[in-house]
Nucleic acid binder design. Structure first.
Lengths: 255, 255
DNA sequence: AAACGTCAGTGACGATTCGTCATTGTTAAA
DNA sequence: TTTAACAATGACGAATCGTCACTGACGTTT
């Protein structure tokens, strides 16, 4: 009467990842708007029914891709968190790791944005929705850690009766807004508009940190030169890949 | 031989608006993820072919709704711009008009977010895409005007070699990020999380303005009391409607 | 070893939704 | 009245979705 276990979790995870990666390739090739389950099924050594065992529908698959993408971003964030340097610099570095992510993996970035739409969330499984929330919280922990370091070394004090979570959210929402709004420009080489994403992100971050009273203030330190060095040290491969795509982070147009 | 004009522009515009409003009602009732062209057609005194005369497809209709929503928001922004008061207060007020909009018209707000997805943009007509860009620029002009007023009365100086457009974008992307990320919380009465959207928006705005060096600084003025009065004067109806929905802007939890 | 039960896998199928287009109706000039 | 251009219709084919009845493989029971 013991129900036989025929499939181990490992194999299931592997298969799930294979489906996700296949879907990402299709998104890269045809655009997210043309992704269909039928196409995914033909590109995968399983039948439709099996795919639907893993994902209750197309939207659920999208959310799973989004979750996977957030994991990738979480790794970049963690590297920024671990960098040696003052807290404020590392927070700026973290924001730029977000930008690098958006430039390097546009399909993933795009999918995360799409997955935020109620169109997707409304049709997804509880399991993947909860996983997504967990992952976003995890993302926040890197930010959290940097803020705590800033508080610990007294370069930062909590302003306006705010708590740590609020401060983390401030930085996150600011970076999110800037990169999202300029993400359409992120991919192209030359900006049609006069807004340059790396410059706006840099200025916006510094204004916010100055407003928080986070030392060293902009007037006392060349954050730009520091950032340039840190990026080259922490993300050499990623910067090279971006360059290979014909795009490049340009810090010369602003001091 | 003169080709007869049978439909005037006015009637066309009216019909387009009727279709849009019908679709908005359906979104409110069934959620944006369940909007179908067939349902729209049955709710409208025209046939499918006629609807498709106006909108090349479902996504194009969504974009048109988004554009319509941006017009509504533009009106709120303009009222904030015209308010009497110091520039910095008005900018804060403008951000809060954005929040009011998100709370009062969740379906519209949601549609604007969805319409940003490449899923939608990729399948829409040039006409509506261009119209959307025009409308967003128009939105910016209210922000632009307030910044210029701040420069004119010397309460603000351009920091870090930035130009006016960059400053406008900073405020916009910050407000966008905060409200978007907390929009899922915007509708519900009590916050499960410890983040309260009106409080975060208030703090984030003030930190940014302080960082810009925009006077009067937070330490010198009770922006909160001022904002409370301004909101009551400028958006009495809207605040009442929000209250009627069971939600209320709460300023007591922070000074 | 035969019968049985459980579960993974399959892909044909019905249902839904989309967008088109051949047809019909309408208007105003000739 | 005829005609030409425009407007409106809704039946239809195509695409996509997600389900479900069936098959087969494997371990357990008899």
């Amino acid at each position: 009467m013991t129900p036989p276990k025929l499939l181990d979790d490992k194999a299931l995870k592997e298969r799930e990842l294979l489906i996700i990666n296949t879907a990402v390739l299709l998104i890269q090739r045809n655009g997210i708007e043309n992704l269909t389950m039928d196409k995914v099924v033909t590109q995968v050594p399983f039948s439709k029914g099996t795919v639907y065992k893993h994902f209750v529908g197309k939207e659920d698959l999208l959310l799973a891709i989004s979750n996977h993408s957030i994991k990738v971003l979480g790794d970049l964030f963690h590297r920024a968190y671990q960098f040696k340097g003052c807290a404020r610099s590392r927070m700026l570095l973290l924001n730029f790791s977000y930008l690098i992510y958006a430039m390097l993996y546009p399909a993933l970035f795009q999918t995360v944005l799409c997955a935020k739409s109620p169109n997707v969330v409304g049709k997804s499984s509880e399991k993947h929705i909860n996983e997504g929330e967990r992952l976003e919280i995890k993302l926040m922990t890197s930010i959290h850690g940097i803020v705590e370091d800033g508080l610990a070394d007294s370069s930062l004090e909590l302003p306006m009766n705010m708590d740590i979570q609020q401060l983390c959210f401030s930085n996150w929402s600011m970076a999110y807004g800037a990169i999202t709004l300029l993400s359409s420009e992120v991919e192209q080489c030359s900006g049609r508009t006069s807004l340059i994403v790396e410059r706006e992100l840099f200025n916006l971050s510094n204004m916010l940190y100055d407003g928080m009273g986070w030392k060293p203030f902009t007037k006392d330190r060349s954050h730009c030169a520091e950032l340039k060095i840190a990026l080259a040290e922490l993300f050499p491969e990623e910067l090279a890949q971006i360059k290979a795509k014909g795009r490049e982070l340009n810090f010369d147009s602003f001091s």
